[in-house]
């Protein structure tokens, strides 16, 4: 994963709640064995009209949404399946950050592991961004802030480890492999104490 320190872009809004992973990438495109190339199917059944052309009703097809790398979406974005194809598709489609008032656990975990910022804001701040798309935002990963064009800054929560990994492009698998000796010790301990009832201390 490449280090990610900042996302600077205008926003586009998807003002719908519960945008599920089947909306983000329909299951029939999951037969791929690659990570790359899923962007053309991001939001496939919403984005394209029946004739294969762009659906003008899809918010991200509008002229003002072109080039926007930040999407502000309704509550509970990414609910549904564990498919990592969802963040892969969004990143390949050009989206670098998703902001919502609630983001599903597995989607959020998958997104952050791929350098897609998944940011949860309090209702009022989320509502303001959702209702006013098209504004230029600067998301500062180190400071955990979103700065608006008028200079105001919204703070957001981001786990310290996730922040560290994003900023430094940390390979989490490498981190786990480094714990190999501890894992060995755990396996030995677990085998020795198998089915042992813990007694109150």
């Amino acid at each position: 994963m490449k280090p990610l320190t900042e996302v600077r872009s205008r926003t586009a809004a998807l003002p719908f709640e519960n945008i599920d992973t089947d909306r983000i990438i329909p299951a029939r495109f999951l037969t791929t064995t690659q990570r790359a190339g899923l962007g053309r199917h991001a939001f496939n059944d919403w984005r394209y009209a029946a004739d294969g052309g762009d659906n003008p009703e899809f918010p991200l097809n509008r002229p003002e949404a072109q080039g926007c790398a930040i999407v502000v979406a309704g509550r509970n974005f990414g609910c549904g399946s564990s498919r990592e194809h969802a963040p892969w598709a969004l990143l390949d489609y050009g989206i670098q950050a998703v902001i919502s008032s609630e983001i599903a656990d597995i989607f959020r975990s998958n997104a952050l592991k791929n350098g897609l910022l998944a940011i949860v804001l309090p209702e009022a701040e989320h509502r303001e961004l959702l209702d006013h798309p098209g504004q230029e935002l600067v998301i500062d990963v180190a400071a955990r802030t979103i700065t608006l064009a008028d200079g105001r800054a919204f703070a957001f929560a981001l786990d310290g480890f996730a922040r560290h990994c994003l900023l430094n492009g940390v390979d989490q698998l490498g981190f786990l492999l480094d714990a190999g000796a501890e894992i060995d010790a755990y396996e030995q301990r677990a085998q020795d104490t198998r089915y042992t009832v813990e007694t109150a201390a």
Binding site: S82, N110, L173
Partner: peptide
Amino acid sequence: GIGTTEVG
């Protein structure tokens, strides 16, 4: 459930 990176 976990994602594919976590499967790895």
